[in-house]
Design a binder for these strands. Structure first.
Length: 187
DNA sequence: CCCACAAGTCGCT
DNA sequence: AGCGACTTGTGGG
């Protein structure tokens, strides 16, 4: 009963992202329907069209009467606009708050990714070096792969040192498409 | 705690 | 171009 042992009671942050998703809304684009998922803190995930994800039988049986909070509607509008710009290769001006969950290492990587301007690229080596871990090149690639909000967190701007593409969680076709939209020619 | 894997890179053939 | 060695964060046993 120690009052001193408050732990961090007020808000238990669930380790499980899925449990904290308040709403998953689609964004219809010429490329297909993206799915944006939000927590109380912001955009937590952006899924590519037909990403074979979200089998969501739960979604089908889910109570549809839960209203989407206004704050999320606003965020979603920002996401929609940002995504449309990004797909055209235009620099993304405004994005909603991001609720990016990951290890310290991953967060540093993602943070660095966000500083790569549209039309510019970086190698996995440089990315790793940029956060002070020049040897964690492969791990940097892993962190890119774990990026929960692709496109808006531009992991597609990271290429292999050998002037090759490297990988992409959404499929290399997407990586090429995104890069070419930004005027970057890819082999 | 130990082990295997991964969106890499470099050197050698 | 292909192959192996090496590196290091991450997740599973």
């Amino acid at each position: 009963m120690s009052a001193s042992h408050q732990h961090s009671s007020s808000r238990v942050r669930s380790q499980n992202l899925a449990d904290d998703i308040l709403a998953s809304l689609t964004i219809r684009t010429v490329e297909g329907d993206f799915i944006a998922s939000y927590t109380s803190k912001g955009l937590a995930r952006l899924g590519f069209p037909a990403s074979a994800e979200l089998p969501s039988p739960a979604s089908a049986s889910a109570p549809a009467e839960i209203p989407v909070p206004d704050s999320i509607r606003l965020w979603h509008e920002l996401t929609r606009r940002a995504l449309e710009d990004a797909l055209c290769g235009k620099p993304v001006s405004t994005v909603p708050p991001l609720d990016l969950r990951g290890t310290t290492f991953q967060r540093e990587i993602w943070s660095t990714l966000r500083r790569i301007p549209a039309g510019k690229t970086m190698t996995y080596s440089e990315l790793a070096a940029r956060i002070g871990r020049p040897n964690a090149v492969r791990a940097a690639g892993g962190a890119c792969g774990a990026n929960p909000v692709p496109v808006l967190v531009p992991c597609h701007r990271v290429l292999a040192a050998s002037r090759k593409l490297g990988g992409f969680s959404g499929g290399l076709d997407w990586k090429r498409k995104l890069l070419e939209a930004e005027g970057i020619s890819v082999p």
